[in-house]
Computed example of a mutant assay.
Amino acid sequence: MNTMSLTASVAHSSWRSYWLEAKFEFLRLLRTPMFAVPTLLFPTLFYVLFGVLLGGRKGGAGAAEYLLATYGVFGVMGAALFGFGVSVAIERENGYLVLKRVLPMPRGAYLLAKMAMAMLFAAIISTLLAVIAATLAGVSLAPAQWALLLVVDVIGALPFCAMGLYVGSLVSGNGAPAVVNIAYLPMAFLSGLWMPLQVLPPVFTKLAPVWPSWHLGQLALKVVGRDAGAPVLTHLAVLAGITVALFLLSRRRLAR
């Protein structure tokens, strides 16, 4: 009986450590204006401008639906890349990761907390865009579509968490924001997240499958019926492969 009680106590303490680490990581970044403000506001402001004001005049509900899906992916990328890439680089450089290793906390709690943070920010961004789309842009989707779009955005943060983690394991704290921006903004543009690739030269459409953001964007667009028609399993396989590969590479580097 004592052994069972001890095991239960240890399990409870372990789960509490995971919960507290995730909670305080989220609160830390939420209270960091340089991260929280652009992460939450940029996708929503861009959607209001291009999806509601301009999109409503030129493309109607079709443009609003397209940009709802793609700006959700754009917002998810930002939360994951900056939440991981910049913070991990700074914390690694300042010796914070070494401190975490010697603390009596479960292994993996640090990374799981950052993943939970990115996914929670992704959920907030997706919800804000959905509210704007339904109230201001006239987007009407079935309840299952709204829910599935939220799931795509939240789970879709994981490949970019892995990408951000790998960047954070490579570069310095001062260099991380520049490197993340170099990856983030061109990748969003070249994946058709700001405008359909059909309006660009054909070479951009041919190169689009190279980018993980294109695959996540296609999954989101499939929910609203505006994707390019590639199989769902192809997109999932590419995103899962990128996630696993980059997490393993990052783990190897951070373990040195």
Rank of each mutant, 00 (worst) to 15 (best):
M1C: 11
N2D: 14
M4P: 00
S5C: 07
L6V: 12
L6I: 13
A8C: 04
A11P: 00
W15E: 05
R16V: 06
Y18R: 01
L20I: 12
E21C: 05
L27P: 00
L30R: 06
R31P: 00
R31C: 09
M34G: 08
M34R: 14
A36Q: 08
T39M: 02
L41A: 13
L41Y: 06
F46D: 00
L49I: 13
F50H: 01
G51M: 01
V52N: 01
G55K: 02
R57P: 00
R57N: 12
G60A: 10
G60D: 05
G60P: 03
A61T: 13
A63R: 03
E65Q: 14
E65S: 12
E65D: 11
Y66N: 01
A69N: 04
T70I: 02
F74E: 00
V76R: 01
M77R: 00
F82I: 05
G83K: 03
G83M: 06
G83T: 06
G85R: 05
S87F: 14
S87C: 06
A89M: 08
E91P: 01
R92E: 07
E93N: 09
L97C: 08
V98Q: 15
L99H: 13
L99F: 14
P104A: 09
M105E: 13
M105A: 15
R107C: 04
G108V: 09
A109F: 08
K114H: 12
A116T: 12
M117Y: 15
M117E: 12
A118L: 07
A118H: 05
L120A: 14
F121N: 02
A123I: 02
I125K: 02
I125D: 00
T127H: 07
T127N: 05
T127I: 11
L128M: 15
L129N: 01
A134G: 10
L136S: 11
G138K: 09
V139S: 05
P143N: 10
W146R: 04
W146S: 03
L148T: 12
L148A: 11
L149K: 01
L150T: 06
V152N: 03
D153Q: 12
A157W: 05
F160V: 00
A162F: 09
M163E: 06
L165D: 04
V167I: 15
S169Q: 07
V171F: 09
N174I: 12
G175W: 08
A178D: 07
A178G: 13
N181R: 06
N181C: 08
I182E: 04
Y184E: 00
P186F: 10
S191L: 07
L193S: 03
W194F: 15
W194L: 13
M195G: 07
M195A: 14
P196M: 08
L197R: 03
V199R: 08
L207A: 15
P209W: 11
W211Q: 09
W211G: 00
P212K: 04
S213T: 12
W214C: 01
H215V: 01
H215Y: 09
L216V: 04
G217V: 02
Q218E: 15
L219E: 02
A220K: 03
L221F: 10
D227V: 03
G229M: 11
V232D: 11
L239K: 05
A240Y: 10
I242F: 11
I242K: 06
V244R: 10
L248W: 14
S250I: 07
R251F: 12
R251I: 05
R252N: 10
A255F: 09
